[in-house]
Design a protein around this nucleic acid. Structure first.
Lengths: 193, 193
DNA sequence: ACCTGAACACCGTTCAAGT
DNA sequence: ACCTGAACACCGTTCAAGT
C-alpha cells in the first residue's frame, strides 16, 4: 500500500525541492496579500522561473488547493470527531464555526470556492473541498433536525454558504469580532420574532 | 434655486458630453463585466483617452459612485416611502430586500462598499452610500424592535452587512433564486429551534 | 524530463505635449 | 482649461531554447 504523495517512479530531487519551496512561499504570500497575490512574485521568491510555477500548478486555484491541502484534511477530520458529539445542535454550531475559520484563512478565499460551486466543473481543484464540506454540513444539519435542534426546510448547502459569507465578511476586515458574533446569532436565531 | 448638476459657470460642451458618454459606457461595462471591468476599455469605448477618464473620475470607486448615483437616490427615496408603512416588521423586510437588490446590480459591487466601511475614510466616494443605508437600516430595525417584530441585541449595521453578503452570493452566480429565498428565511428566523 | 527567462498581451495610471 | 496618447510599471501566461 503506497502513500499518495510518493508515486511509484522516483522524482528528480530538484523537482521535489522546487515544488515544496513554491508551496511554502505561496502560503506566506497568500497569508500576507490574500488569494489574489502576484504569482510572479511567488515564483521569484521561490527562486524559480514563472514557467516552473505554472508547470507544477497550472492555475491559481490549483496552487491554492495544494497550499490548503493540509488544512483541508484537518477540517474533514475535525468533522468526523464532531460527529461523535451527543448534542447534535452543538455539533452543527461548532462545525459551521470551523468552516467559517477555514474560509477566513486568506483574504478572498471564499470567492474562488463559490466560483467552483457555480462552475460545477469536477476538474476545478477547489470543487472537492466544497463537495466534501457541503456533504458534511448536510450530515450535521440532518442530525440536528432529527433531534429537533434545527428547523426543517433548510439544506446543508445553505448553511455552508452562510458560513462562507461570514468568512467573506471577516476576511475583508470590515467586520470586527463582536459583529461576527452577533451575525452568527442572527443566523442561528434570526432577527425576527 | 439652481440644480446641483449645473454649476454657476458654464462648462465646455465637449466636457459635458465626454462625462456623460463615459458614465453611459461605464454602466454597460459594469453590468456586463462586473465592477472589476477594464477602465481602459471603458475609455476606448467612450471615445476618449484614458487620461480624460481619470480626469473626470480619479479612481474606480469614484466612477462607480457616479454611475450608481441615480439608483442610490431611488433607494433612499424608497426607504422614505417604506417608513410610512404601518407594519414595521414588513417595512424592515422590504427594506433589506431593496438593499440586497441594490448591491446585486453589478458583480462584485458588495466588496468595494465593505472596503469603504473598513477604511473609515469620509473621502471614499462609496462611504456616503454605506452611511446612509446603514442609518436607514437602523431606523427600520429600531421601529421593528419597538413593535416587537425584531429581536434586541442586533444593530442596523449587522443587518446591512447581512443583506450585503446575500447580494455578494447572488452576484457571484453560485446561488439560485430558491437558495436566496431560503437564506433570507434563515436570516429572519434562524436555522436553530 | 524539467527548468529558464524572454516574449507577448493586457491593464492601471501618469504626464508632457498639444489644442 | 481640457484632451490626447505615449510611456512606465506591473502582471498572467506561454513557449522556444537550454540543461
Amino acid at each position: 500500500m503506497s502513500s499518495a504523495q510518493s508515486p511509484a517512479r522516483k522524482q528528480r530531487a530538484d523537482v521535489v525541492r522546487n515544488r515544496a519551496k513554491i508551496l511554502e512561499v505561496a502560503q506566506n504570500h497568500f497569508f500576507a496579500g490574500g488569494v489574489g497575490t502576484s504569482l510572479e512574485a511567488v515564483a521569484k521568491d521561490a527562486g524559480v522561473g514563472p514557467g516552473t510555477l505554472y508547470r507544477h500548478f497550472p492555475n491559481r486555484d490549483a496552487l491554492l488547493a495544494s497550499v490548503l491541502e493540509l488544512r483541508r484534511t484537518d477540517l474533514v477530520e475535525l468533522g468526523q470527531r464532531l460527529g461523535d458529539l451527543d448534542d447534535t445542535g452543538e455539533a452543527l454550531r461548532q462545525w459551521l464555526l470551523a468552516v467559517e475559520d477555514y474560509f477566513s484563512l486568506y483574504i478572498g478565499l471564499s470567492e474562488p470556492h463559490l466560483s467552483a460551486i457555480r462552475e460545477q466543473d469536477p476538474n476545478n481543484p477547489l470543487a472537492r473541498t466544497c463537495d466534501d464540506l457541503i456533504s458534511a454540513t448536510s450530515d450535521f444539519l440532518l442530525a440536528a433536525q432529527r433531534d429537533g435542534h434545527a428547523r426543517e426546510g433548510i439544506l446543508g448547502r445553505d448553511l455552508f454558504l452562510a458560513a462562507n459569507s461570514l468568512a467573506w465578511m471577516r476576511s475583508t476586515g470590515a467586520v470586527d469580532e463582536a459583529t461576527t458574533v452577533r451575525l452568527r446569532g442572527v443566523l442561528e436565531n434570526g432577527y425576527g420574532i
